[in-house]
């Protein structure tokens, strides 16, 4: 841990370099994924809720979006970043209130399993989506 101390006016600023550890990486991830989510999550909400009025949402609409690789990649990136950021945030919240280390360990394992299963399940749904079959189901053909 290297520390540099500088004095500007009446305040003391300590620049501390912390060696990489899990909590530091998680802290940095919350910030970097947050910046990415401003584009992915806010963009997604603006697009789907405001510009493509939700009242028109249909299976055909989703089929059309998932016939484009660009939107598939967008949706998968959003899936990975939003869920990982949200579940890690949830872990942070729980750690503030649950002080039993054993219980927290079990919860952390369950959260990781839930995160991985959700990403694999929904990621596979996007990757394997068959727009022609989705349209056929909607039209009853």
């Amino acid at each position: 841990m290297a520390t540099t101390i500088s004095n500007t006016d009446s305040r003391t600023i300590r620049n501390v370099r912390v060696k990489a550890n899990f909590e530091r990486t998680a802290f940095m991830f919350m910030r970097s994924s947050g910046i990415i989510l401003v584009i992915l999550a806010v963009g997604h909400v603006m697009l789907q809720l405001i510009f493509n009025n939700v009242h028109y949402l249909s299976v055909e609409f989703v089929a059309e979006q998932w016939s484009s690789w660009g939107w598939k990649v967008y949706d998968m990136a959003l899936l990975v970043f939003a869920l990982t950021h949200g579940i890690n945030g949830f872990r942070n919240v729980l750690e503030d209130y649950i002080h039993n280390r054993g219980a927290m360990k079990v919860i952390n394992i369950l959260l990781v399993i839930f995160l991985v299963v959700s990403i694999v399940w929904a990621g596979y749904a996007i990757a394997s989506a068959d727009p022609a079959a989705m349209d056929a189901a909607a039209l009853g053909q």
Binding site: V62, A122, A125, S128, A129, D130, M134, A137
Partner: peptide, 12 residues
């Protein structure tokens, strides 16, 4: 997320 996955797995 789980609901939207159904658009692909179970459109109905």
């Amino acid at each position: 997320v789980w609901d939207t996955a159904n658009a692909s797995f179970a459109p109905n």
